[in-house]
């Protein structure tokens, strides 16, 4: 009957998610240009599974399907998961990951707004732990691979896991720079000698750095549109750079330089798209700084000492666990209150 603020001027949730998708487009475009069209198939597959599973669950809970589906949050989760997976990941891997992310990590907690963990990262972590070999098979960038696969061959490989007759598996795939760096360091080669290998580009991975730059552009657009607050990306990148700088100066032979850490792996994707998920992240400005710094520290630890090549997923999940505590203790000073 009486709803006091009669006028509202806020972009609908779907507009916010639309802007996030828009910010991802340059990254996807660079991705396709470097690694070929395989990723598009994964994205379509993931989005389709996400929408179908969300609709099914909403039907199960007798909730109106259209308003929830049209807020595109499931599409964003699916896209983030697809971009984190290796491009030539078999189709069932993508479906299982998306199903786990949407059903368990999001809808089980009550749908949009209640999931304590970032759904995309939950899906990625589940896949990484249950199918480690498939997850570490990254294709070499097209220019580097001995026999670059055309789009149809990639499509064929994704769905039937068979290669064109004359091509062997390792001709197509190679380790990611991070993975390669870790294995070489185990054999305690010098970092400087390792980075001469062909797969290392000017900063990060040979072709990968362009994708990272594209993500950077998308991320800056999001900040300018005030969809994400600047606290998270800056804190993450600053801490990651600072830690790698410290380790690098201590022992340059054993630790890669900061720029490499920033530009390689999923750092930029994580900084602008993964930790800025509003639902599972902190809400207070100071909380965001602590959260992003925590993710950066854990990512660096897992990258250098841990067992997995890129620890972004686990770092995000672990810091998601601390979010309620961080929120509770970083309440800003209310107008008229002394520091509580």
């Amino acid at each position: 009957m009486n709803r006091s603020p009669y006028i509202t001027d806020a972009p609908a949730v779907s507009i916010i998610m639309l802007k996030v998708l828009l910010a991802l487009v340059p990254g996807i475009f660079a991705y396709v240009w470097i690694y070929g069209g395989g990723i598009l198939v994964t994205i379509v597959l993931a989005t389709f599974t996400a929408l179908v599973s969300e609709a099914a669950l909403l039907k199960l809970r007798q909730r109106p399907i259209r308003p929830y589906l049209s807020d595109l949050s499931a599409v964003v989760t699916a896209l983030l998961l697809a971009l984190a997976l290796p491009p030539l990941a078999p189709w069932w891997l993508v479906v299982v990951g998306t199903l786990f992310a949407i059903v368990i990590a999001k809808q089980l907690y009550g749908g949009l707004g209640y999931n304590p963990f970032n759904p995309a990262m939950v899906g990625y972590a589940v896949l990484l732990i249950s199918f480690p070999i498939v997850m570490t098979k990254w294709p070499a960038p097209l220019i580097l691979a001995q026999t670059p696969l055309g789009f149809m061959d990639q499509l064929h490989f994704i769905f039937s896991n068979t290669l064109p007759t004359d091509v062997k598996i390792d001709a197509v795939t190679s380790a990611t720079p991070l993975d390669y760096l870790k294995t070489q360091l185990m054999l305690n080669h010098e970092v400087s000698s390792i980075t001469q290998a062909p797969i290392f580009g000017v900063w990060g991975a040979k072709g990968g750095e362009f994708v990272t730059v594209a993500y950077l552009l998308g991320g800056l657009y999001l900040i300018q549109q005030r969809i994400i607050s600047w606290h998270l990306p800056t804190a993450f990148l600053a801490t990651l750079a600072a830690m790698s700088l410290v380790f690098y100066t201590v022992n340059p032979a054993h630790f890669a330089n900061p720029l490499f850490h920033l530009m390689s792996g999923a750092s930029i994707l994580c900084a602008f798209f993964i930790i800025t998920d509003p639902i599972s992240g902190p809400t207070t400005p100071r909380g965001k700084l602590y959260f992003a710094a925590g993710v950066a520290v854990l990512t660096y630890l897992i990258r250098v000492y841990g067992g997995y090549p890129d620890g972004v997923a686990f770092a995000v999940l672990i810091m998601n666990m601390c979010v309620p505590l961080i929120d509770m203790h970083t309440q800003p000073r209310v107008f008229g209150h002394t520091k509580n």
Binding site: G307, F314, M321
Partner: peptide, 11 residues
Amino acid sequence: LMSLAFMGFAG
């Protein structure tokens, strides 16, 4: 899910 996250520390 928390124990899943802690698996990341393996090694």
